[in-house]
Design a protein around this nucleic acid. Structure first.
Lengths: 346, 346
DNA sequence: TTGAAAGCGCTAACAC
DNA sequence: GTGTTAGCGCTTTCAA
């Protein structure tokens, strides 16, 4: 007690202190059955006495079947991913699995590194929301020789199990909404077209524009992955000779940047410019006017990812499955009829 | 190739394929020296051929000195913590350490569980930002028999190494600022007084009020840990008979809730009510008016935590050290002179 | 029930 | 340089 060892106590130490074999001590401490109550108590007491801490890693190694699931996220700054992580955490814990979180910081190299790290820690399964680079993501998926679910930034042709939002239909709805309000010069601001889901959103926007004979007004603008970059790019868009009357942003980070630009350009929403945001975020609720946005069913997505992972873990699923969830257009205050004035002077 | 084994290849398989001993294979694959170029190549080739993946866990176990650092965060929703995590990640990776992230979700029991989990994975050190419960945090700190740094929600009497913001002086500055603008009915909205740093902020506010002979107007209101709870509580505060002319919120989550309430109550900032936020957040930059806030030096804090951890890891530090960082009051647009009208009718 | 013993995949002496 | 071997801390047969 007074003079603790340099090395932490092991199962062997517990066994010696409790005057039982390591095997018995192991059974007790690992929650297995087949030990008399009397000796079990002795083991627990001994463990407490010498301050024993189980080495789960050694246990996993010997057991050969890990109980952790790796989750690698592209951006902790994006509330959408954090919400998914929170949902997954709850499900995992509830099913006796531990989540090992890793953060790629929107950096493909870092992502590869993080995946390798998590995999090398012997996880039972992997859940990945990749960052930019479709081929890159495919290569990474191949690295994972455990049950794998890829989410959000993948499509239905991805060679892995996927859970995603139906970006296309939501984007179609959003564009139609703006067009119905009389907008013609609608710009689509996207983080990067290197992301499939962003590409899908942009394509659906373009299709909707074409269908409405507005092809000449199509403007898809890549803004970069950070709010800072979106800010700068949007500022340029807004200061062009023919300013768009409506902005359609492809994700919440882009929206944040666009809002800063609109603020800097001293423009009023929706008077000077309408704004439609793909993706909700908690802070949007304090904005005046309240943002019209496309809301993704985060809880449902998280739940689906977990259910799928569970099936995979139990070997009940051999073919790739691609799950799609419908996003909802919430019409609020930031989109309005285009004024004759705005349409002309813009 | 065509009929892969059920069990993944091990070092032994590589050695056999490369026609060398496991020892040699180990040296090559672990980056040690003392192997001829010729055989090294053979090992690499064999590894690639059979799709070998190193089991770092087994290596760590054998080596006895892990290279991961555990980081447990209370709330991934709070940008402040995420920013600290990002800073730490970069530093850790740069120094050859891997960060294992865990999320307590503002739940003390979950926190204990996460700490145990991370510890059981044999980390070399722990960095913890605890959730509510000072005694609880102390108990958890004791659980960690590896180098430990506690951050943010601790004070200088905490029995561990700590890195924190000087909440007291920042809160004093903030309150003084509001008083100087003529405010008297200043309410301090705090998540919970169970958090030391929140307590410090509240106390400094109270002291400043007393010093200005405004003791009768002191109002410290606990709002809970989520924006939703803060929203509800603030709404009550704003609908009271004598409405405060200024709100001082204790952290960015509380600020978010307060903003929602102000919106719901149809009040104008700063005309009807001034708002001062302890803690900045990216989304605050899109608000009109731009929020007056107290900004914490996240980068510096992250860097300090890491430097301290490094020292601890190298055994260069035996006494507890308590580092404090100065936060900065950024006066912007959400705080203004109290109007005679507001002061009376509030 | 219990204990002895054989490893899980890897590293690090240590001889050759 | 290279191979052999004894473990890291734990689980899990298998006899007793």
């Amino acid at each position: 007690m007074s003079m603790p060892d340099r090395t932490p106590p092991t199962l062997r130490d517990v066994a010696i202190t409790a005057k039982v074999s390591v095997g018995t001590a192991s059974k007790v401490l690992s929650g297995a059955s087949g030990v008399s109550a009397e000796r079990a108590r002795r083991v627990w007491d001994a463990a407490r006495l010498i301050g024993y801490r189980r080495n789960e890693i050694a246990a996993d190694l010997r057991r050969g079947r890990p109980t952790s699931i790796g989750l690698v996220l592209p951006d902790l700054t994006n509330q959408f991913f954090v919400d998914i992580a929170r949902a997954l955490e709850n499900h995992a814990l509830q099913h006796g699995y531990q989540l090992i979180l890793a953060h790629a910081n929107e950096n493909p190299e870092r992502e590869t590194e993080r995946i390798r790290f998590v995999m090398s820690r012997q996880v039972a399964g992997m859940i990945i929301i990749p960052c930019r680079g479709y081929q890159h993501a495919i290569a990474e998926a191949r690295e994972c020789n455990v049950p794998l679910v890829m989410a959000d930034r993948v499509d239905d042709t991805f060679p892995a199990n996927t859970v995603t939002t139906n970006s296309r239909s939501a984007s179609t709805d959003g564009t139609a909404h703006l067009i119905a309000l009389g907008h013609q010069r609608i710009a689509f601001l996207v983080n990067t077209l290197e992301l499939v889901n962003s590409r899908e959103r942009a394509e659906a926007y373009m299709d909707a524009m074409r269908d409405a004979h507005l092809a000449r007004h199509i403007a898809v603008i890549e803004c970069g992955m950070t709010a800072m970059q979106s800010h700068a790019t949007t500022l340029k868009v807004l200061s062009g000779s023919t300013r768009p009357t409506a902005l359609f942003t492809g994700c919440n980070v882009t929206t944040l940047g666009a809002l800063r630009a609109i603020r800097d350009a001293d423009l009023q929403i929706p008077l000077d410019v309408s704004l439609l945001s793909f993706d909700d975020a908690p802070w949007m609720s304090v904005l005046r006017p309240y943002l019209t946005s496309i809301s993704q069913p985060v809880e449902a997505i998280g739940h689906a990812i977990w259910q799928l992972m569970l099936k995979l873990l139990n070997g009940e699923q051999d073919e790739f499955v691609h799950l799609r969830f419908k996003a909802e257009l919430l019409v609020r205050e930031s989109t309005t009829y285009v004024s004759a004035e705005t349409a002309v002077t813009g």
